[in-house]
């Protein structure tokens, strides 16, 4: 029977350390429950955007075809997709109990996520200053920033989360206490990418088509 000490300083990690403890299993189930809820939350924002994407009211606005540029969105998509793969690599090394390599891949994931966020800030800044496309200018603007901005906030939160885990556990090494935490954070990161797949398709690509 494993005690408290074993969990915190486990030398011989079992297969799948993220689900070896009851707490790890509960975290895993609870987090998927949360992701189901997040799906609905984003769906309400997507539905709002789809309904209002051509609503300018009495205000002057730039239609989606002229507003969006595909190059930047393509680069952002590739960056976020790659960061999803690097966090898969991090979990691969976690399963092989290689803490150092896991940290390296998590660091790469964070760098890619941060560059994605930087590009998004640049993009929003561009829309506001070049096109006067703001949150309050018309219903389309509100729906657009609510949806894409909310996703950006998720990316920012995910970055803080992974960084906090990395700093807190830097000297601890991998154990049964923190393995579930890393695993859950990587699930969250993949979910961010899932949402982005729909954002680039529904918002940018469909916006470009008209």
């Amino acid at each position: 029977m494993s005690t408290h000490e074993d969990v915190l300083s486990s030398e011989n990690l079992p297969h799948e350390p993220e689900k070896a403890t009851l707490e790890g299993k509960n975290k895993f189930l609870g987090f998927w429950f949360f992701l189901g809820g997040e799906t609905v939350l984003f769906a309400s924002l997507f539905g709002t955007y789809l309904a209002l994407r051509n609503s300018f009211g009495n205000a002057e606005g730039t239609p989606t075809q002229e507003l969006f540029g595909l190059e930047l969105v393509f680069i952002m998509t590739v960056i976020l997709l790659t960061s999803s793969l690097t966090s898969v690599y991090a979990m691969y090394h976690m399963k092989n109990h290689d803490f150092k390599k896991m940290m390296v891949w998590l660091a790469i994931t964070v760098i890619l996520g941060a560059s994605f966020l930087g590009l998004e800030v640049y993009e929003f800044n561009h829309y506001v200053h070049e096109y006067g496309h703001t949150f309050t200018s018309h219903a389309f603007g509100s729906a657009f920033y609510a949806l894409v901005g909310f996703h950006g906030a998720h990316v920012a939160f995910g970055l803080c989360w992974i960084l906090a885990l990395m700093f807190r556990n830097a000297k601890r090494g991998l154990n049964l206490y923190n393995a579930p935490k890393f695993y859950i954070a990587s699930l969250y990161w993949h979910f961010i990418d899932v949402v982005w797949v729909f954002i680039f398709t529904v918002v940018y690509l469909m916006g470009k088509v008209g």
Binding site: A43, S44, F46, G47, A51
Partner: peptide
């Protein structure tokens, strides 16, 4: 499932 219903209703 709930997401599809939400999007359909809103649009």
């Amino acid at each position: 499932f709930a997401a599809v219903l939400t999007i359909l209703a809103l649009t």
